[in-house]
């Protein structure tokens, strides 16, 4: 394998959890399993030492001109703590590639068909295309997803849409449940990795323009807002993605059961939730977010 040169480089081991998520170099799986039971600290030390070597190799590839990105598993932090002083020389994927989307409240919107029938997802896919006709990138995704992604468990779909689109889709799905076009209600939610719902200085909020990376008032406000707005379940977590001490984040799921009451809740929640992300990024000084907030008529008294 010497002399190989990839065109792109990243890593998604569970490095955020050095005891359970990263096989130390040179260890067998059996040795690892036994040590995790009997002497977890030995695993911790060995895994962290391996991560330092791993990150150094990533830095070397980067120095050789290979585009290299951290994929949010905190491996740079582990390497830094192990003495790799320039571990953060390669960027995280959020500031490099995702933040411009977050500024407009665009993020991992998803829904699942409680009927268990894949046909319900096919119908919602068609509805998304009809309601967002002018986005070829989104249509391409939906076509490829329908063709290549096998459902795991209940049929579900994800597509990254933002403020102004999420509530329209939610209301449309609710109407489809009411009319019987869908066989049963759908749940609509998102990852905690979203525009307004997470504080994670080594990942989602790395290198914020105003230096507010570690401020976790934002995900707390997001959870409170979604609770007040009437989401069906709301969660507040710590340590996801990058591990204990490094993140706080909130989740939201809302049910479209076809009722008018659900329509009122959907309209509030699926507007307010992404709007809180636009608010957070406008406060941090991102002009794209401020423009989006003005365009959508958000009332942000201390920011705009």
């Amino acid at each position: 394998m010497r002399g190989i040169r990839p065109d792109l480089l990243t890593d998604q081991t569970s490095a955020h959890d050095p005891i359970n998520g990263y096989l130390p170099a040179g260890w067998t799986l059996e040795q690892w399993a036994t040590a995790r039971e009997r002497d977890p600290e030995s695993v911790n030390r060995a895994a962290r030492a391996s991560m330092a070597v791993h990150v150094q190799a990533m830095l070397d590839f980067q120095a050789a001109g290979v585009p290299t990105v951290d994929y949010g598993n905190n491996i740079r932090q582990m390497a830094l703590e192990e003495g790799v002083a320039n571990a953060f020389d390669f960027p995280g994927f959020v500031p490099a590639y995702i933040r411009p989307l977050f500024c407009r409240g665009i993020g991992p919107f998803r829904w699942a068909a409680l009927s268990g029938d894949p046909e319900d997802i096919a119908r919602t896919d068609a509805k998304v295309k009809a309601l967002i006709p002018d986005n070829p990138h989104l249509h391409n995704w939906l076509d490829m997803a329908a063709e290549k992604i096998k459902f795991q468990g209940l049929p579900a779909r994800i597509c990254w849409v933002g403020l102004g689109d999420r509530h329209r889709l939610g209301l449309a799905f609710n109407a489809m449940v009411a009319s019987g076009e869908l066989k049963a209600p759908v749940v609509i939610g998102r990852d905690h990795l979203d525009s307004g719902s997470v504080a994670s200085p080594n990942r989602e909020t790395e290198a914020m323009r105003d230096g507010s990376d570690a401020v976790s008032d934002w995900p707390l406000l997001n959870a409170l807002l979604n609770t007040a707005s009437g989401a069906t379940w709301v969660s507040l977590h710590h340590g996801g993605g990058v591990g204990m001490g490094f993140s706080q984040h909130a989740g939201m799921v809302i049910v479209a059961d076809g009722t008018q009451a659900a329509a009122r809740r959907l309209e509030r929640v699926l507007w307010n939730d992404p709007a809180s992300g636009v608010m957070r990024h406008a406060d941090a000084g991102y002009e794209v977010a401020a423009e989006c907030a003005r365009e959508k008529g958000l009332d942000l008294p201390g920011i705009l």
């Binding site: 699942a112 994800i158 990254w160 990852d191 977590h237 989740g251 799921v253």
Partner: peptide, 17 residues
């Protein structure tokens, strides 16, 4: 993130991101 908050939908959830 979505394990304890009951909205993990398998790897598709991350495929698009």
């Amino acid at each position: 993130m979505t394990a304890g908050s009951w909205i993990y939908i398998g790897a598709q959830g991350i495929v698009q991101g």
